[in-house]
Design a protein around this nucleic acid. Structure first.
Length: 292
DNA sequence: AGACTAACCTGAAAGC
DNA sequence: TGCTTTCAGGTTAGTC
């Protein structure tokens, strides 16, 4: 599932395909809860608009338009942004049970019934598509100067925050640290996988009450989180995307991931079987020996 | 305010 | 083989 690193990679790859181009027309699927702005309104507002920039906040992408409006995009769990004839990072869920979807490379990146938004440009060049099988993604048009509660709710971007900031928020929470990490109002951009990986690297059990963490632990946790995310961006987001090379070789994911979806497999540090528990309706994988 | 839960959605995988 | 059930998860809304 796309978390901060995957969204950032998507931004980097998509920006050159969007910026400076003028939208001629769009196509959408039928109105649904995927569209925070109804398709009819999107059609009116987007045609003729030039995209000036593509920015990211947490897991949100924001296409800045030449009239000051902004197109807010969220990939949800299975969202994919891609362009005609341009290979991009594929984002798909892992199974959460120790393996990634086996035929992950077989599908996607072909416009189909799940392609809810299609942007066509006046230069006749490659169209840009937003596909999302599960429709957990979101599209919203923000008028110039309009406020957006979803964005205003977000805490500091996970890559920009400091341990002290996390500690300040954690002190007030008796919920498990895992849940606090996933709270986008505390840190924007963290999802299940990087939360688990960061907790492992910081040696903290996911169920630990957030308020019991020391400032030093919070600093280590933020350091671990940022290291994991930066490394993921560096390796092409391989730790989430099901990126598989044409010869079937895996991307960097397996080398980077230490606990997520490794239930029952030996810890890479101590060989203790990785344990999986459920916290707040989400699976959490950790090493009972390395994380105390 | 924080904690907790259900709901949204669909494909893959597991179970029978 | 094929049908049924389970599961994954980001976010929000609603309840306590």
């Amino acid at each position: 599932m796309p978390e901060l690193p995957e969204v950032e990679i998507t931004r980097q790859k998509l920006a050159p395909l969007l910026c400076g181009r003028t939208i001629a027309r769009i196509e959408t699927t039928a109105d649904s809860y995927f569209f925070l702005t109804p398709p009819a309104q999107l059609k009116r507002a987007l045609s003729g608009r030039r995209v000036e920039a593509l920015n990211r906040r947490g897991k949100y992408l924001l296409a800045e338009l030449d009239d000051g409006a902004r197109l807010l995009l969220h990939l949800g769990m299975t969202g994919q942004l891609f362009a005609d004839g341009v290979s991009s990072v594929r984002l798909l869920t892992g199974t959460g049970k120790g393996s990634l979807a086996p035929d992950a490379q077989a599908k996607g990146f072909t416009p189909d019934a799940h392609t809810h938004l299609r942007l066509h440009f006046d230069d006749g060049g490659p169209a840009v598509y937003f596909r999302d099988a599960r429709k957990f993604g979101k599209v919203e048009l923000l008028a110039a100067g309009a406020r957006c509660a979803r964005l205003e709710r977000l805490g500091p971007d996970a890559l920009e925050t400091r341990g002290a900031e996390l500690h300040a928020a954690a002190k007030k929470r008796k919920a498990p640290i895992k849940s606090v990490l996933l709270d986008q109002a505390v840190l924007a951009g963290v999802g299940n996988i990087y939360a688990d990986e960061a907790l492992f690297r910081a040696g903290i059990r996911p169920r630990t009450a957030a308020r019991r963490l020391s400032q030093l632990q919070c600093e280590r946790l933020v350091e671990a989180l940022q290291a994991v995310m930066l490394r993921s961006i560096e390796t092409g987001g391989s730790s989430i995307s099901d990126y598989v090379q044409p010869d079937g070789q895996d991307g960097g994911y397996q080398d980077e991931r230490r606990v997520y979806a490794r239930e029952g497999l030996p810890c890479l540090q101590c060989e203790t079987p990785i344990r999986r528990i459920v916290i707040g309706q989400r699976s959490s994988c950790y090493c009972p020996h390395c994380q105390r």
